[in-house]
Design a protein around this nucleic acid. Structure first.
Length: 271
DNA sequence: ATACCATGAACAG
DNA sequence: TGTTCCTGGTATC
């Protein structure tokens, strides 16, 4: 679930349900008891999202930092009485109309504005921020000899991209994940940024990842295309566009997917 | 009942 | 580069 679009969607949806109201906050599982006590009964001012991070600002100056990691999930119950706890609930936030449970996060902790600032400072631009600076992304990529497939997963290069958007954004731009960042042209890097921005925004709207472009939705070009498909290469056996068998391999501990036909290893005439 | 897997990232060495 | 942590769904015995 959690790439940047999920986090921003959560901030928006949960903000509407919780912000401006006093919350009963607890830690049914017990691993966030001390933190929950500090905000229990206080009004949540707002939920902030940046990259894959969330911050909960309370009116008593307390701040909670949440990072879902690979397993973290929220469960929302729109009932006035909190439902029975299911599974390992690290944090529960309830008001008169809704209960929000958080399970399995990498981080759920009290924080200070300074903590938050240092996290934001080490993150790259988040395409979902209004004032995101693409030049920071272009500069980092064009200067690096690391493979672009790794750079896109590096949150200090661009914040919010995960394994699905990496695979899909590189596919859409015909770029092989193993190409060093500095072998990409400025145009290619700019196009990647545009793609990532569009995919993340669409992801927030859809509340899921569907990366297919209009041309492919209107005129499926492959045998393997079926209604309801959502990705070109991620976790697929065959390329959704040309039916070539997808190449998948381990890239620093995460599975990388690419189409050997649609994604060229190098540009002719460059290295 | 057990194994494995996942849209993540910090840390050790 | 490898290990560790977090949870729950699905596959496999």
């Amino acid at each position: 679930m959690p790439e940047g679009h999920t986090i921003h969607r959560i901030a928006r949806d949960h903000g509407r349900l919780l912000a401006g109201t006093a919350l009963a906050v607890s830690s049914p599982q017990g691993r966030f008891e001390a933190g929950a006590e500090r905000v229990d009964g206080h009004v949540l001012d707002r939920i902030e999202a940046y990259g894959k991070h969330l911050w909960y600002w309370f009116d008593n100056s307390e701040l909670i930092h949440v990072h879902l990691g690979l397993f973290g999930k929220y469960r929302v119950a729109r009932t006035s009485t909190p439902p029975e706890v299911r599974g390992a609930v690290r944090m529960r936030m309830s008001n008169a109309v809704v209960t929000v449970d958080l399970a399995g996060p990498t981080a759920c902790e009290l924080a200070t504005p300074e903590d938050r600032a240092s996290i934001v400072a080490r993150l790259g631009p988040d395409p979902l921020q209004r004032d995101a600076d693409p030049q920071r992304f272009v500069a980092r990529v064009s200067r690096s000899k690391a493979p672009i497939g790794l750079l896109l997963m590096d949150q200090s290069v661009v914040a919010g991209v995960g394994n699905v958007f990496r695979a899909e954004a590189l596919f859409v731009n015909g770029i092989d994940p193993e190409r060093p960042g500095r072998s990409l042209t400025v145009d290619e890097i700019g196009a990647l940024w545009s793609t990532i921005t569009a995919m993340l925004r669409q992801g927030v709207k859809d509340n899921r990842i569907i990366t297919l472009e209009r041309a492919d939705l209107d005129r499926p070009r492959s045998r393997s295309f079926k209604r309801g498909e959502s990705t070109y290469v991620y976790k697929r056996r065959d390329c959704l566009r040309c039916d070539s068998p997808i190449r998948w391999w381990d890239m620093s501990g995460r599975t990388c997917y690419a189409c050997p036909t649609c994604q060229t290893p190098v540009i002719i005439g460059r290295g």
